[in-house]
Nucleic acid binder design. Structure first.
Lengths: 235, 235
DNA sequence: GGAGATTTGTGCGTATGTATG
DNA sequence: TCATACATACGCACAAATCTC
């Protein structure tokens, strides 16, 4: 019989609560004092347990505010000095971009969190398809916060690219602050667009671009056909 | 001017010592009591700092024995030395590695090409499973060219990690020259090992590590459970 | 905007458990 | 067996950020 530390038992209990969906994304956990009281332990012991969840990426804390349920299930950083490079244009392939939809709507909770705006704030949604040699290779989706980027929708209609459109609304430079990669199944819609079978594996990337002022200006998601595309990371 | 906590300053100081090579790999750090005395702080404060280094993967601790240097990071100021698995481990979550198979055989055509050897040349194949919190998260497979790395199989048996094993056979340093990412379906075997359903999407990564002489010394492949793991790239 | 309460972060002290050598 | 060293856990105090009124 292995003896499990109290802090780990607390972490496990909380992780279980999260797994069961007893807390929603972004929701605040009980305070350390409340948890310490509930489990009948010292506040430090609770903190130790919570810190484990923070390391796992399940929870993030804000001093003075509380501990909140993180959006992502598990994140594994794989390096700080890695450049993300989409190597779509491998040897003589002609890339194209095709706009599928462009409209303005209210931000979902996840989009709002990524863009650091309030849920329901107006955003511009830009959907499209990337092709190489006339074969679809990826679906992309860019969300722009309208509160910061007035006129981005019109700019996207006029120009032919995100960079140019952002420049039109005053964002001369932006940097990608994070990229996340995971594998998912193709939904029916995605399968149709990418011309793969429903349920086929897709490589999903999500990322946020910040302006030089440090504000999020674009939340992008892409789905690559797993059997057709390989992303390469160059050091 | 930002105020840095004492524990962070201690972590930085120790990390600096490691970067300068003042401790060798495997060497024991001063005891917590000694460090607490040196820095004039409480032992808990030292522990907090050391725990940060443990999470980064720079140090590992053994109860009753001490804290030991895990790796000397020469890549701090400049450097494109991305140690894929080490960085995964740095994410914390009490990772484990479980060896599944270790044998010597002839290289397949693809392995030979990646390692720049002749097809059929003898290689060492090292298969394993990565776990976090006792849950499988990835399958890894490393192929080593025996023509360049005599005794690597025995070294892998003795040591507990690729880095240490390579050092045993004379490769003190190596660099990942490329990483490729794609999404695939889980085979029956992979599904069993990763405890997912057959056909579930997996994030597949492949990469080659070169020695400081520029020769390929390892061809690695990993399969991550797509619904459980997100790789993050930080700029 | 300001004052006070709340909540997390940091740090110290103490005690005991457990693995190591 | 015994001392050493890390691991866990409690308690106290204050700082810093946040939230509420």
């Amino acid at each position: 019989m292995k003896k499990t530390p109290i802090w780990k038992a607390i972490a496990d209990a909380l992780r279980g609560d999260l797994a069961e969906g007893r807390y929603r994304t972004g929701e605040r956990l009980p305070t350390e004092a409340a948890l310490a009281d509930r489990f009948g332990v010292n506040r430090h012991t609770v903190r130790h347990g919570i810190s484990a969840l923070v390391e796992e990426g399940l929870v993030h804390t804000r001093r003075g505010a509380g501990a909140f349920v993180a959006a992502t299930p598990t994140d594994y950083p794989i390096g700080n000095r890695v450049r993300f490079h989409e190597n779509l244009i491998a040897a003589g392939r002609r890339p194209e971009k095709q706009m599928l939809m462009l409209d303005e709507r209210a931000a979902t909770a996840g989009e709002a969190q990524a863009l650091e705006i309030a849920a329901g704030d107006p955003v511009c949604a830009y959907h499209g398809l990337s092709l190489a040699d006339e074969h679809p290779v990826a679906i992309f989706e860019s969300i722009f916060p309208l509160v910061r980027l007035v006129g981005i929708t019109q700019a996207l209609k006029k120009t032919d690219g995100v960079t140019a459109a952002l420049r039109l609304v005053g964002v001369d430079d932006f940097t990608r602050v994070s990229t996340r990669l995971t594998a998912v199944r193709a939904t029916a819609t995605q399968a149709l667009l990418l011309q793969v079978a429903e349920g086929d594996p897709l490589l999903k990337t999500t990322g946020v671009n910040h302006s030089d002022l440090g504000q999020p200006v674009e939340y992008g998601r892409s789905w690559f056909a797993g059997d057709r595309i390989t992303l390469t990371l160059e050091t």
